[in-house]
Structures are given as C-alpha cells and as structure tokens.
Design a protein around this nucleic acid. Structure first.
Length: 707
DNA sequence: GGTATAACGATTTTT
DNA sequence: TCGTTATACC
C-alpha cells in the first residue's frame, strides 16, 4: 500500500460513534462481516441510517477504500440524501471517490467511459419519455400503423419493458416466430410491435441516442460480452450496496450480478411490503432470488419502528397481514407510545370530505402546527383538485408534488431540441421538432424531400442539409435541389451561426442568444399575448427565461465542482452543454421555481401528493383521502387477480406508515367523477381493518361521521 | 398555416 | 366534466 492509499483509507470517524445510538439489530447489520447480505427493513426502521452507517463502517473499520464502494438507489433524491449524510462522516476526498448514484447514472457513467465498446458514439444523448413517444409515433406513421388503434405511448412503454427484460427486437421476432410455429396464432399487435421495435432500435442507433431502459440494457450487454471491462469493474466494486431492493427489475438484478466479482459483496436493503412499482417492472421476488442465488447471504431484519405511534403501526400491521405473498413476515413495533387514535372520516360526499380535511388542517394550524408537517395523500392525481379548492378557500397554502414538470413543457422541450442538435447532429427527432418552429415555411413536403436525401446518403437530416449546401454552391445542381436548398438556407445559416457562437460564449449567454435568434422568445411571447396570458402566471416566455437561469445556475455549480465531472481518466471530460442536457434528463427532472433553481419552497405549505410519491417520506400529520372502493384498491386492479390487489394493499400500507403522530383516513360515500355522481363505499381494506377489531375494546381508530 | 370542431379517454411515475 | 389532439376547412 502506498502512502497515498493509506491516506485515502484513513479512518475518518470514530468507530464507536458510528454504532452509537443504533439498536441491536441495526448494529448487527452495520457491523456485519464482509459478506453478501439481505436486510429486510420495515417502514420507518432506519433503513437509510443503516446504509449510511454501513458505508462509513466499511471505510473506517474494514479499511475498504471509498473508490471500491458502490451505493445504488432508485431516485436522485435518495442518492442525494445518501451522499449528504455520508458526507457528514467522511472527508471530502473519500466522498468524492465514492459512487452513490441511481442505477441509471451509474450505468451512464460506465457508458460514457466505454461508449465505443458499447457501440455508441461519444457524446450520445438521452432520449426522454417524450422523445421516445414522438419517435415511436413517427415510426408508426411511416409504417402506416394506425395510431388511433394503438397509441404510440403504448408501444413505447412496451418497448421499454421488453428492454427491461433484456429482450432485443431480434429476440422478440424470434419469440413471435416461435409462437407462430407452435401455436400458429400470434397476435397482430405483437407483430406490429416487433416491426416498430426493430425500426426504433435502428433509428436510436442512427441518431446516437439512448432511452432510459437502453442505458441499463447496454451496460448489461457490455459487461456480459466484454470480459476485460467486466473484470475491471469487478476489481473496482468490492462492496456494492442497494437501497429499495424490492423495486429492482430483472435487468437491474442482472447488472448487480455482473458488477459484483467473485471477491465482491452485495448488501441489499428492502421491504417487500413496500413494493408498489410492479407495474413498472419491479419484482420484489428478487429478494428471494437474491437469497437463493448469491453465495452465503446473511440475513438481517429491522422491525423496530422509530417513526410512528403504535396505533398507526397497528393499523398498518393489521392491514398488511391480509397479504399472502410476503417474503418475510414482520410486525412493526414502535417506540413512540400508543399515541392518539387514527380518525376515520366517514363523509357523505367528496365535497364534505374536502371541506372536513381543510377544516381539520385549519385547526391544526391554529394549534401552531407547521404546515409542512402535514400531508394530504391520495391514490389518483385527479383527486387533488377538490382539496386544492378547499384549501384555497380556507387560505391555506399548499404545494403539489408531481403534475406537469418544468422540463416537460412544450416551450422548454423546443428550446432543448435546438440545443440537442448542436451537440448531436444525428438527432433527427430533435431536429424535426424545431425545423419549422417558429414557422419558417418548411412544411411536410420539404421535410419529406430532406428525409429522402438523408435516406439515400444514410445520414441525418442536418447532414443532408449540409450536403445540399455544399452541392448547390459548388456544382451544377438540378433546379429541384436548388429550390429545395433555398427553402432551408435560412435555417442552415441559423444552424451555422449557433454552432460557431456556442464556442465563444458562456453557456447561459449562449442559450439566451439561441432563444433570441431562433425567434423562440418572440414566438412564445406572441403566443402568450394571443391567449391573454399575463406576464406573470406561467407564461411560456417567462419559462424560457427560467431555463436560462437554470443553465446559469448549473454552470456555476459545475465551476464550483458540485457536479462531478469525474477526474479519473476512465470518464472523459465533456462538453458543458452535453453535461447540462444529460443532467436535466437524468438528474433534475423535477419542478423548478421561477429562479431556475430546484430549492425547496421557502414558505410553509401543506404537502399534497399521491401515495406513490410519498414513499420514503414522513410527516407528523397525514390525511389519506379517497379511501374508497374503486379508488384504493383501484377499480382496474381489484378485479384482476390477487397479486395486483396485494400491491394496492401495500400501497395503502405505505400511505399509513408515512404518519408519525396523527393519521386521518377519509372516504366519501358518494363522489362526483367525470361529471357523474357515483356511489362508492369505504375501501375493502377499511372493512378488513375494522373487521379485525370487531370485538376489541382497544381499537386503534375511531370513526367520525361528517355530513 | 392557423382555426374550429369533433372525438376521445381519464392510475400510479422514476429514470 | 374537462382537457388534449387529430382532422377538416378556410
């Protein structure tokens, strides 16, 4: 070991301090030997704390080097939180070397480092869900597949889930042929899908872009086939830790098996009772699989809950007991006393429900409760509307998590499309979005001709225009080509101007320049004016300004070294613009405020969100609303088999276990939905819970009628 | 190239 | 019911 290595792995935190304050089972997990381990951590049992402590323990006790540790999470939020918490124990050098990232950014880092070996051109961009949908739509139209019969987004998501199962277009074709040969009937839709999938793969390759699923699949294929690269990673990643393991899908599972070498150890933390993303490919049986496939897995169970009162936990325990497909049975025990009873609001209708909740929040507020300690949770986004109205009327400020994301807005996507073609001229998807935006007389006919040229020369549309420019100015071109060029020459000049200015200006100034010369500023401010939008309320013009601020902020954070541009030579340094574009598709994604930053709301607000979005969070006061049949469990699921019903039950379980001190569960007996008045009853889950306490004098809940 | 009208369809959501 | 979107039409 060199001195430098010793410095790198020098203990940074007092070992006894790491274990201080942990309970016995947490301590056991944190100080586990270097081994494969499965930690089953019930809701609120200090899962993140254990993970963070384990990482620090690995470094200080086992002298594992930070660069040999990989921690993987699902969301950027979780990754950020983990990095921050680890940062409190480690020195800056260790923190820098440690990989604590989402599955996607981990893979992306590998792909950037080994782009060529993975069959990509360096500088490739990420195709987000919108881009994916529009590409699929374009393909379906080209193949004359009726997009009214089958929604492009349907095919797009099916392609993604095929990729998440590791199935390529080729494999899918083989499958269909196999079915044909044996059963003689294959579905018409599947055959169409296969055609679209093939074309989709081809175009993504041509355009040098990867979608989210591709990021994972490419990495897996790279590691599967390239032994040399795999061995480097095996050597590097000695200790791998995975958060929310119940949410892994099959490609992520395979990734773990490939990243871990024979001397590596994998520690996974999860809770099968909180698996609520199976519709997205998550498979909590990976926990069982892990136990059976990885050698010598040590098991740890965390069931002491630090979050909620026992009444709340009893509700949760009673509910989840009805699930049969559990990997490991656990009963949450708390250390916060019994607490007050859970209130079940039995409301005459949804209006009453909304007003009752608002009234209750008002009285909490009057008692001096911080609004940010209150959350209103619901199964479906459309349920938020009524609560928004009721809260507005009561003058109670709130924030809604989710909803339309800033970067999904049309004007932002258009601006980004301009930026994308500047770093990746192969990106036809981006180009087609803006070639005639704002209108510059490039209609479908011109586009058609351009696409013909690009097909002939197997190049992108921009390259076709470049080719046209060369050809027309230097030789005796045909009249048709000359007129064609005259129609796109203005756009070509714009493109050339942007390409050259990009190098000479600071990035945010350049983006501002781009918005000016492309005419996007004018286009959108005129559009705003036409629709009578005031300067203030979410005008599209203003949003473009917010984009510039966001770029500026990003620029500053890169300069301060906050965004890791990996210094190790395996990751090459990149164009700042590529870095920005990658960052917003993969890392930011969320809502940003008018200053262009993603800092939290400065003032006190009640939190409104879906139960899905609440996972991993906790609040002192929680209202779970619309606890009704056909809503929770959702009408689409209750009829379609046990496992989806069980997932809905887990969802309710997640909701309940968010509450620390007080929980209100509310339902309406009648509800106006889509203009129609429907009679719903209380959720079957509520009957299950109440039924369990039928003869008990010691009920964890009380029912309150609201009329 | 923009506007009016009809038709549709409406879980959950991160990357 | 309400918002989005495709198509027809000017």
């Amino acid at each position: 070991m060199s001195d430098l290595d010793l410095l790198d792995s020098a203990p940074v935190a007092d070992e006894s301090k790491i274990l201080e304050g942990l309970n016995d089972s947490q301590k056991e997990a944190v100080s586990a030997p270097l081994c494969n381990a499965l930690i089953i951590a019930g809701a609120g049992t200090g899962k993140t704390r254990v993970l963070v402590s384990r990482i620090v323990y690995l470094i200080s006790h086992y002298r594992v080097k930070a660069r040999n540790i990989l921690a993987v999470t699902f969301t950027n939020k979780a990754a950020k939180e983990m990095r921050e918490r680890i940062g409190m124990y480690l020195n800056a050098n260790d923190t820098h070397h440690l990989w604590a990232n989402t599955f996607h950014s981990t893979c992306l880092r590998l792909l950037r480092a080994y782009a060529t070996q993975a069959g990509l051109t360096p500088g490739f961009l990420i195709l987000d869900t919108d881009g994916q949908n529009s590409l699929v739509k374009r393909i379906m139209q080209d193949l004359q597949i009726d997009i009214k019969e089958i929604k492009p987004s349907e095919f797009a998501s099916r392609i993604s889930s095929l990729k998440e199962k590791g199935i390529r277009a080729d494999d899918f074709h083989k499958r269909i042929n196999y079915i044909k040969n044996t059963n003689k009937k294959s579905s018409d839709t599947a055959e169409k899908l296969a055609l679209v999938y093939t074309a989709y793969e081809r175009i993504c390759n041509q355009e040098n872009s990867v979608d989210f699923a591709e990021i994972l699949l490419r990495t897996v294929e790279l590691l599967r086939t390239n032994t040399a690269i795999r061995e480097i990673q095996n050597e590097r990643f000695r200790e791998i830790l995975v958060d929310e393991f119940q949410d892994t899908n099959s490609i992520q599972y395979e990734l773990l098996t490939l990243l871990a070498g024979k001397d590596s150890h994998v520690m996974v933390v999860g809770d099968d009772d909180q698996s609520i993303y199976s519709w997205r490919g998550a498979d909590y049986t990976n926990m069982k699989k892990f136990l059976n496939t990885f050698p010598d897995v040590h098991q740890y169970l965390l069931s002491l809950n630090y979050r909620s009162t026992q009444n709340i936990l009893d509700m949760a325990n009673t509910l989840i007991e009805k699930n049969f497909e559990r990997v490991m049975l656990k009963n949450l025990k708390g250390n916060n006393g019994t607490g007050s009873q859970v209130s079940i609001f039995k409301c005459a209708n949804n209006r009453v429900e909304e007003l009752s909740v608002a009234k209750e929040i008002q009285s909490l507020k009057d008692q001096g409760v911080k609004l940010s300690d209150i959350a209103v949770l619901y199964r479906n986004n459309y349920l938020s509307f009524g609560f928004e109205q009721a809260l507005t009327k009561a003058k109670i400020p709130y924030v809604i998590y989710g909803g339309q994301k800033f970067f999904d807005r049309a004007e932002i996507q258009s601006a980004l499309a301009y930026l994308k073609i500047l770093v990746n001229k192969k990106d036809d998807t981006a180009l087609l979005r803006i070639i005639n935006l704002p209108a510059r007389k490039i209609g479908p006919k011109v586009v058609e001709s351009l696409r013909n040229i690009s097909n002939e020369h197997s190049c992108s549309i921009i390259e076709a225009i470049e080719y046209l420019h060369e050809y027309v100015s230097s030789s005796e071109a045909s009249k048709e080509l000359k007129t064609l060029y005259s129609k796109v020459s203005a756009f070509y000049n714009l493109y050339i101007d942007l390409i050259s200015k990009k190098e000479t200006m600071r990035l945010h100034e350049f983006v501002h320049h781009m918005l000016t010369v492309t005419g996007l500023y004018t286009f959108y401010s005129e559009k705003d004016a036409k629709e009578g939008k005031s300067e203030e309320d979410n005008s599209r013009y203003k949003n473009l300004g917010v984009l510039v601020s966001n770029v500026k902020e990003f620029e500053a954070s890169v300069e301060q070294g906050e965004v890791s541009v990996d210094s190790e030579n395996e990751v090459e340094s990149e164009d700042l613009l590529i870095l920005y574009l990658t960052n917003i598709t993969l890392v930011s994604g969320g809502e940003i405020n008018e200053n262009g930053s993603d800092e939290a709301m400065p003032f006190e607000c009640v939190n409104l969100m879906t139960i899905h979005a609440s996972k991993g969070l906790e609040f002192k006061y929680v209202f779970i609303c619309g606890f009704e049949s056909d809503i929770l469990p959702s009408s689409r699921k209750s009829s379609s088999g046990d496992s989806s019903l069980e997932e809905e039950r887990r969802l309710a379980y997640v909701g309940i276990t968010r509450a620390k001190e007080q929980l209100v569960i509310s339902y309406a007996k009648s509800r106006t939905m889509f203009g129609k008045n429907e009679l719903k009853g209380a959720s079957s889950f509520l009957y299950d819970i109440v039924g369990s306490y039928e003869n008990s004098d010691n009920k964890p809940y009380k029912i309150v009628a609201k009329i």
